[in-house]
Every structure is written in C-alpha cells, then in structure tokens.
C-alpha cells in the first residue's frame, strides 16, 4: 500500500509536468481547431535547450524561459508553413516536427542526450526552503514547482482569452469565415495561438528535463498522444457552462489522471511493452463515455414514456 502512495507521488509530479503540455494541446486542438503535431518535437526542443543551458551554467529559471521561447519559435514555423505557404495543418506540423529532430540533435552537439547532474535546478529553491532532499524528495519538489507553474499558466491564459485579441483567436477557431468578415487577421491569430501552445510544450520539456536532470532527443516521442489523451480524459467531466480557468485546470488534472493510470498499471506488474495498448484503451474508453451517457439517457426517456403510456 505504501508502495502505491510512493509511486503515486511520482505519477502526480510527472502528470503535472505533462499537464502544462496538455493545456497547450487543448489550445490548438479545441480552441483553434488545428491538429498540431509539432509538439512531439517542440517539447524535446524545450528539454534539450534547458539541458544545454544548465549544463553550461545558466540559472534554472532563465533556462525555462529560453525553453518556452524555443518552443514558440517551433510553433511560429508551423504557423507560417500553414498560413503563408498554405500547407495543410497536419502536414505543416509533421514537417516542423521532423525538421526539429535534426535541430535538436544539433543543439545537443550531435549527441543523443546531455545530462547535468549536480547542477542547480528549479527544485533546488524549494529544497533549500523546506529542507528537503533534492533526490529522495524529488517528486514532492517537482509537484511544488509544477503547481506554481500550472497556476501561472492557467491564470495567464484566462486573462489572455478574455482580451480583445484572445476573443479574436477563439473566433478564428469557431468560424474563420466569420472572423475574417469581422476584420480579424486570421493568419495572425493562428500564428499567436500556435506560438503560445508550442511555447507551453517547450516549457513542459524544460520542466521535464529539470526533473530528470537530462535532456534527450527522444524525450518527445508520443507527446501528442499524451496531450490528446489528457484532454479527452478531462472532457469526460468538462461541461460547457464551466468557466474557462476551470476547464484548463481540469485538463491539467486529466494529465495527472492519465499518468496515475500508467503508474498503477506498472505497479500491478504490467509489462512495459503493453503500456501503449493501455494508453489506447484509456483513450477509447474515455471517448465512448459520452456515447454511453446518451444511451442511458435515451433508455431512461423510453422507460419514462412507457410508464406514461401505461
């Protein structure tokens, strides 16, 4: 039992890190209605930028900001490919993702990974403050870091999408024909939204790198699946009437839930080879929940009508 709790702390810390990425995916996938596959690589870009910077003596916070910036540059490229060169969304994302792999390797100095054990990370601040062990209490420290980062991210987005420009981004996602007719520069809104979303992916990559104290060129594999799964899990409980910040918070929790399911599965002795199958099963189940709800509601209605007849 204690094992489960211990492992859960690890699952929660990773879940919160990926939660930042999940929010980014929510922005493009749901709000902008743009299937963006760049995140697989922009997360890795964030991670390797942080790794290289910290290994060379940069402060952790500055490294995180740089990762965020690097991620948004990736988003900029995809957006330009789509808006200016008219390349379809999915293809634009894939192209940027592929190109970034080589760029990530270059950033790492043509190696597969760079580690920076012993160098200061953002967790170090809390370790000193609360007198905790950097390594043994790593997960608790990461949770503190991520709660702060996630709150800042949700707060920022809540403000941003309430502004004039933010509303024009939402309009672009809902109905770009109408948006253009209302004088909205839909190219610009797409670019900004993709930059923010991939900036979040880069930030998540930076947090992940600081958690693992290394940046690996393959750390981004399967990111889009993780992001989408988290969003889909969250949407089983999200209702239209919820306020925007609540929806974003639930997306973060969706990511935590997803990670906990994995942790649970591994604790139960599931083989790592089967983890991808578990992931797909979770997503399919989550996607059928609204369908099942409808069927139950329909049966209830039928039952009610039958009662009335009788």
């Amino acid at each position: 039992m204690a094992q489960f709790l211990n492992a859960s702390v690890g699952g929660i810390s990773l879940g919160l890190i990926w939660g930042v990425l999940a929010v980014g995916v929510y922005l493009t996938y749901r709000i902008l209605d743009f299937a963006d596959l760049t995140v697989d690589s922009s997360l890795a870009t964030g991670g390797v930028v942080t790794a290289v910077l910290i290994a060379n003596g940069c402060t952790p916070i500055l490294a995180l900001l740089a990762s965020c910036l690097a991620g948004s540059c990736a988003g900029l490229i995809t957006a330009l490919l789509n808006t200016k060169l008219k390349i379809p969304a999915i293809l634009a994302g894939i192209l940027t993702m592929s190109a970034l792999y080589s760029i990530n390797l270059k950033i790492l100095g043509n190696r597969a990974n760079v580690s920076f054990f012993g160098k200061p990370t953002i967790n170090g601040y809390w370790a000193d403050l609360f007198n905790l062990s950097l390594i043994d209490d790593k997960n608790v420290l990461s949770i503190i870091t991520c709660v702060i980062v996630c709150s800042a991210v949700v707060g920022f987005l809540y403000w941003f999408f309430g502004t004039e420009f933010g509303c024009s981004v939402r309009a672009t996602g809902f109905n770009s024909t109408m948006a253009k007719a209302q004088g909205i520069n839909t190219d610009l809104t797409k670019i900004v939204c993709l930059m923010i979303s991939n900036g979040l992916a880069g930030l998540a990559g930076g947090l992940l790198a600081q958690h693992n104290q290394s940046g690996d060129v393959n750390m981004g594999t399967g990111t889009i699946v993780i992001g989408l799964a988290s969003v889909i899990l969250a949407e089983t409980v999200i209702r239209d009437r919820f306020s925007f910040w609540l929806k974003l918070a639930l997306v973060v929790l969706g990511s935590v839930a997803y990670r906990l399911i994995f942790t649970f599965a591994v604790q139960m002795g599931m083989h790592t080879n089967d983890l991808k199958l578990v992931a797909t099963a979770i997503i399919v189940i989550a996607l059928t929940v609204p369908l099942i709800k409808k069927k139950i509601a329909h049966k209830k209605l039928k039952g009610g009508l039958n009662n009335v007849k009788n």
């Binding site: 094992q3 211990n6 492992a7 690890g10 699952g11 990773l14 990974n113 997960n139 958690h211 693992n212 690996d216 393959n218 750390m219 594999t221 399967g222 994995f262 942790t263 591994v266 604790q267 790592t272 983890l275």
Partner: peptide
Amino acid sequence: DPNNETTLAQTLVAQ
C-alpha cells in the same frame, strides 16, 4: 523510451 525509463525508475525506487 526515455519517458518509460523515468517512470520505471520511479517505480523501482518506490518499491
């Protein structure tokens, strides 16, 4: 998979 590796390492440590 480096992400798997992290999760598995955490699992083994937790055990």
